[in-house]
């Protein structure tokens, strides 16, 4: 707690020049995670992210927007160390997870432990070639959970959390591929929920879905933020405006502007942000 307070003070000091940030602080947001001077290089040398500083507030939705190729996915995937799967990627700077105050990029931090606390939903639904039940139970199974009762409860809870329970409760043993695209995506959300993550990452979760399935997922996210912190990448400006509390605008690997979503969408302080939002560019 002391550490947290300490950090808040540092944060206030750092940003005290900007009156808007004082408004944010006045609402007593709790910091859940933040990237500090985060730089990312792909194996081929692409400098995909340059000195990114973005905070994630607890139980809030933070949206990343920006033109294609600006580094949104790269940033999002850094939060659960997805980049470690590919040789040659290099990053420096920090991503601090609170309340532990741990830099999750530290070489001494086990990426598997990080992924257990920060889960991810991908752009294209990617259920496993297993039953609906086993898909949702997967995260608990890899943690060594065998207790059937506990698994049953968790699977039901997660499916309810992803508003999929009513549609699948009678066919939990069906292959997950028999679900529709929107259902598959909610299954992937249930899968990610089953392990009680603290942060959920969404990379354009609705871009492969029809409008109705999209609304379902958006409502779901607003429901989920009562329990956890969300970071979402979206290409859909209305979506960002509708569901997020904070928005970061990125361009060519740089974070141009970060603020409350209302402010970003009504009176952004940077001309570039305004141009992008109003569709003059991008």
């Amino acid at each position: 707690m002391a550490l947290l307070l300490n950090f808040v003070i540092v944060f206030v000091k750092k940003l005290n020049g900007n009156p808007r940030n004082k408004i944010i602080m006045a609402r007593k947001e709790i910091l859940k995670a933040e990237s500090k001077n985060f730089n990312f290089h792909y194996a081929d040398g692409t400098h995909a992210l340059k000195d990114i500083n973005i905070p994630l507030y607890e139980k809030k939705i933070t949206a990343l927007i920006g033109p294609s190729g600006c580094g949104k996915s790269t940033f999002l995937r850094s939060f659960n160390r997805m980049h470690d799967l590919y040789a040659g990627n290099k990053y420096d700077g920090e991503i601090i997870l609170h309340p532990d105050d741990t830099n999750i990029l530290d070489k001494k931090v086990d990426p598997i432990e990080v992924r257990m606390r920060i889960s991810m939903v991908f752009q294209k639904p990617n259920p496993f070639p297993k039953s609906i039940y086993e898909n949702v139970a997967y995260g608990l199974r890899v943690r060594g959970e065998h207790n059937k009762r506990l698994l049953d409860d968790k699977v039901e809870e997660a499916l309810k959390g992803a508003s999929l329970w009513n549609e699948v409760k009678d066919r939990l043993q069906d292959l997950a591929y028999n679900l529709s695209g929107g259902q598959q995506q909610r299954l992937c959300i249930a899968r990610a929920l089953a392990t009680d993550p603290e942060i959920m990452l969404f990379d354009e979760p609705t871009s492969a879905l029809d409008p109705i399935a999209t609304v379902n997922i958006e409502e779901l996210m607003s429901e989920l933020k009562k329990k956890l912190t969300i970071l979402i990448v979206t290409h859909n400006m209305q979506q960002a405006a509708r569901i997020s509390d904070y928005t970061a605008y990125m361009y060519l690997g740089e974070m141009i502007e970060f603020d409350e979503t209302d402010i970003i969408f009504t009176k952004p302080s940077k001309k570039a942000t305004e141009d992008y939002i109003t569709g003059k560019f991008g």
Partner: peptide, 25 residues
């Protein structure tokens, strides 16, 4: 790769990913 990433993102190890996701697929 998206299938493997899904498994890794759930906290699976390499071996768990190989045996429980890649092989069935």
């Amino acid at each position: 790769m998206s299938m493997r990433e899904g498994a890794y993102a759930m906290g699976a190890t390499r071996f768990q990913t190989a045996v429980s996701v890649v092989m069935p697929a």
